[in-house]
Structures are given as structure tokens and as C-alpha cells.
């Protein structure tokens, strides 16, 4: 994330502390996407190092620094896996091999508790959210895959995530 540097890096010590305390959880976030121990460790380390060295977009208005780091790590992991998928696609095309689905679409076992949360969404919201969350696809890739307009995909993702927030809040969780 090439975010503008935060003024005076006043959040850096908080980021470092959150990283020390939440290291294992952040590693799990990266691993869920990458399915590779070494790469997951690199991903977390690189994310934190870049936030501290090149600045970031965290401000107080954003709230939870842990959630901010979770999303930073996940986005970095997704960037890595998209690049990996792109490299293998180019490689295959050069070698004249047949086109195969990118590895991000590998079947995943949906975790039971989250599956139940997703049941609170409408079917189109749920399916679109799954393609983003489990499939790691961008909104444009989802639109291409589902033959839906980009605007529709964006609305479903946005409304779907807000519906999930309502679900968690109603269960008494602070989100």
C-alpha cells in the first residue's frame, strides 16, 4: 500500500505494539490466503515493515488498529497471490499450455461459524461476497466472471459487508 506518510509517524509505536501482541493472528490471516507458511510469515513481516518505513493511512477516525492491520495483511497477501496467479498465467501462455483457473479459486472449506453469518445475507450478496472473500477476486474479476455490471457487484459487496456488520452487532460483538 503506497499510502501517504502519516504525520510524524505518531501511530508507529501503536502499530509495533499491536504487531507484537497480534502476531499469531496476523500470520493466520496471511496463511488463510496464501496457504504457505514461509510466504505467510514474509507477508506479515513485509506489511509491517512497509507501514513503518513508508507511512500509512491510519488515523484515529478509523478506530481499531488491530482491524486496520488485519486488512493491511490480507490485502498484501491478496496482492501476492494475484501476482503469483498472473505469473503462472503468463508462463502457461508462453509455453502454449491450456488456460487453467488461477490458484485463488482453489476450493476452500468454508468455516462453519462464518457460513452461518453469511446465511444472514441475500443469495446474490452471499455469492458475490464469497468470490471476494474466499476467492480473492477483485470487483472487476467478479463482474467478468458473473456477467454482472461492475456497479452491481460493488453494491452487493458493500451492502453484503454492511449486512454482516449488522449481524455481528446484533450478536453483541463490537465491530
Amino acid at each position: 500500500m503506497d499510502a501517504p506518510a502519516s504525520p510524524s509517524g505518531r501511530w508507529d509505536s501503536l502499530i509495533e505494539r499491536a504487531y507484537r501482541e497480534r502476531r499469531r493472528a496476523l500470520y493466520a490471516v496471511a496463511f488463510h490466503v496464501l496457504h504457505d507458511r514461509g510466504e505467510a510469515e514474509d507477508c506479515v513481516h513485509d506489511t509491517i515493515a512497509r507501514l513503518l518505513q513508508h507511512g500509512h493511512s491510519y488515523t484515529e477516525a478509523r478506530g481499531s488498529i488491530e482491524a486496520f492491520l488485519t486488512v493491511c495483511v490480507r490485502n498484501e497477501a491478496l496482492t501476492r497471490i494475484r501476482k503469483r496467479a498472473n505469473r503462472s498465467r503468463i508462463e502457461r501462455e508462453r509455453l502454449g499450455g491450456e488456460q487453467v483457473e488461477p490458484p485463488v479459486d482453489a476450493p476452500v472449506v468454508e468455516r462453519a461459524a462464518l457460513q452461518q453469518a453469511l446465511q444472514s445475507l441475500s443469495a446474490p450478496q452471499r455469492e458475490t461476497l464469497r468470490l471476494a472473500y474466499y476467492g480473492g477476486l477483485t470487483h472487476e474479476q467478479i463482474a467478468a466472471r458473473t456477467n454482472e455490471p461492475v456497479g452491481t457487484v460493488k453494491s452487493r459487496l458493500s451492502a453484503g459487508l454492511r449486512a454482516l456488520r449488522a449481524y455481528y452487532l446484533a450478536r453483541g460483538e463490537d465491530v
Binding site: 488463510h32 478509523r62 482491524a67 486496520f68 486488512v71 459487508l161 454482516l164 455481528y168 465491530v175
Partner: peptide, 9 residues
């Protein structure tokens, strides 16, 4: 939105 995704994780 970030806290919701963190809750999903």
C-alpha cells in the same frame, strides 16, 4: 468495514 472483516477472520 475493517472491523467487520476482522470479525469474519
Amino acid at each position: 468495514a475493517e472491523r467487520t472483516v476482522a470479525a469474519m477472520e
